[in-house]
Amino acid sequence: MIAVKTVLHVLALLPFAWLVADIYLDRLGADPIAELTHATGLWALRFLLLALTVTPLRRVTGWNVLARFRRLIGLYAFFYASVHLSIYLVLDLGGYWSQILEDIVKRPYITVGFAAWCGLLALALTSTRGMMRRLGRRWTQLHRIVYGIGVLAVLHFWWLVKSDVREPAVYAALLALLLVLRLPPVARRIQRRPRAPAPVQRGA
């Protein structure tokens, strides 16, 4: 298990390492800050969708072991979302930080993006075993906000594009699929049932 998790950490950090290399090698083109912001936002959204894929995939395949990687994947969504927000604050707005308050209030795509990050923060802070125990049933209720975070994250992407919504539409479709797979009737149908033991032959 530790080996698998180590591999997952390395894979999850690869995009980050790649971007750091891009900065040092000056491979980010004319507007590196825009490029970094966009790339880290995309990775946050991808990890969020990946975390939402764990449960349906577990149901379909019956591989319950997958549940053990869900927290790790979710925390990387928070990690990339935090890097994304930090780049916006420190590199992009640098020196004009007060602008963020105005942005959050006045610009709907930033409002929903910031709300999504706040949601991820709440989930990250309560992701420990201790918090799980302490919150009990309320932990499950709280962590259902991840569906809302997914919707906010896709809206954040959708509303920032000027006219070509094809790319956010792909993410919206993936999110819709992952949510539909959770509807109880659908979830029941995709659930792989443990095969019943073969009936013992009696008599002859």
């Binding site: 900065i23 000056d26 980010l28 004319a30 507007d31 590196p32 800050i33 825009a34 970094l36 590199l91 992009d92 640098g94 004009y96 602008q99 105005e102 942005d103 006045k106 610009r107 709907p108 795509y109 509303w159 920032l160």
Partner: peptide, 19 residues
Amino acid sequence: PRWSQKTERRLAGSGSRVF
């Protein structure tokens, strides 16, 4: 509605613009 127009990122010069 989407971008504050108070400031801008100046994409000029030969140095890195990350910072």
